[in-house]
């Protein structure tokens, strides 16, 4: 197998379980080729980094911006418009 085929299989192995013989040939290749072995570790690194990012979106060390004041106000306004009529209805019952 060439590195191109191997890297494709490495990526696939992150999404489904590979058949036994394919896993075997991946590991055989890793013994010969440090670059594909690194590629495999790097894909895992990317996976862990993104999962961690998506779980820590509130962490102040991240540069994800908050809602703008304008957006915040407009959301509240829309909610207020929707809340008032039905609630008044409820209270009159």
């Amino acid at each position: 197998m060439t590195c191109k085929e191997v890297t494709r299989l490495i990526s696939e192995s992150l999404d489904r379980e590979l058949p036994f013989y394919q896993r075997l040939s991946l590991h055989a290749h890793f013994h010969l080729c440090i670059f594909c072995k690194r590629y495999a570790r790097q894909l895992l690194f990317i996976r862990e980094t993104l999962r961690s990012l998506s779980q820590r979106i509130e962490d102040p060390v991240f540069s994800l911006p908050p809602l703008s004041e304008e957006a915040r106000e407009s959301m509240k306004r829309r909610i207020r418009e929707q809340v008032l009529p039905p609630d008044q209805g409820n209270l009159e019952q």
């Binding site: 979106i57 509130e58 994800l64 911006p65 908050p66 809602l67 957006a71 915040r72 959301m75």
Partner: peptide, 8 residues
């Protein structure tokens, strides 16, 4: 929850 949802 606005900021959280927005960032999400």
């Amino acid at each position: 929850h606005g900021d959280y949802l927005f960032r999400y």
